[in-house]
Design a protein around this nucleic acid. Structure first.
Lengths: 172, 172
DNA sequence: ATATATTGAAAGGTACCCTTACGAATGTCA
DNA sequence: TGACATTCGTAAGGGTACCTTTCAATATAT
């Protein structure tokens, strides 16, 4: 009876589903950009497309909004400047800072990307029904929020009463 | 009218939600293993925990089932053998192959991980209701399937009629 | 004025996964 | 039975997407 199989969940765990969907979505976005005549687009560029808008932002703010370091965002931005997707101009209000904006070409790339995203979202809403699709979106957001909160204060989360999973915080 | 802002989706695109949830889930799994006394566990080990079961499997099959190359899976397996989580024995039926199994210690690590996953899944089902949680899971699976199919035959997917997104396949 | 904080940038490291290549064992078919 | 291609694990090297550490320039607080 030693060497018994660990209790494996019967259905694939959420992490597997999310991981696979994430991989597929990332690959799809990059592939679409390539097909539309922008073969220089990489996955990391999504960190910019996902946050840049309006009259120009500083790399440090873009980084914060995407949850990566400002150094990483800075590197991505510099690469995209080389590719004529972004432009950087000195911030008149702060001579340390530079404002990042789309170039004319970058605007086209972004517009194509957003059009693709819009089409995808419509396809999904059609496939699942608007209500179910919205439910899935809500679950994803909430799951991330819950786990990020766990991370911030790592007590004994994910434990329902009666289920023993590493009792640590009993007697203080 | 040039330099107009590209049409940005009003709500965060699905890819952003999935990406964030994936990041949070991966981090949570690794952090939990560390908290439970297994600080050697890395994110990449999930590729093994996600597929290994029963009397032993070959690395090539594990790789296929997780969607990575056999070389990558082989490297992960070898590392986990060093860590006394896995064992490799020659396959009696095929002398090229080796069968991967959990070691005694690895069984404990896996069991703890599965317990954590079980607790997580229960927590989610409770938070969202079983029906909504199941809906979300179904959407994730189907999204991955749809996009993987697109990838396999990259015509003009994700385009609803009337929406222009790179017409390519009109008149041959 | 001077200490401290913030910005972009440079340099180097790490994690994860890939491609290419190869030897050993196997299947296949003339 | 003997070529031949295929499949197994493995080795070696590369690429991508981040990270940490550090720095100079600039800004802000005291």
């Amino acid at each position: 009876m030693s060497r018994a199989e660990p209790v494996r969940p019967t259905s694939p765990p959420l992490i597997a589903l999310v991981h696979r969907a994430n991989k597929a979505l990332q690959a799809n976005m990059v592939a679409q950009a390539h097909r539309q005549g922008h073969p220089e687009i990489k996955q990391s560029h999504n960190a910019v497309f996902g946050t840049l808008h309006g009259e120009g932002q500083r790399a440090v703010d873009m980084a914060a909004s995407m949850g990566i370091t400002r150094q990483s965002m800075g590197e991505i931005v510099r690469e995209m400047v080389q590719l004529d997707i972004l432009e950087m101009v000195p911030d008149p209000a702060d001579r340390r800072a530079k404002l990042v904006t789309f170039s004319a070409h970058g605007l086209e790339v972004a517009a194509a990307g957003f059009r693709h995203i819009g089409a995808l979202e419509r396809r999904f809403a059609e496939e699942f029904g608007a209500a179910d699709y919205e439910t899935a979106r809500r679950v994803l957001v909430r799951v991330a929020e819950m786990l990020e909160a766990d991370d911030a204060e790592p007590h004994d989360q994910a434990v329902t009463p009666g289920q023993t999973e590493s009792r640590r915080s009993s007697p203080g």
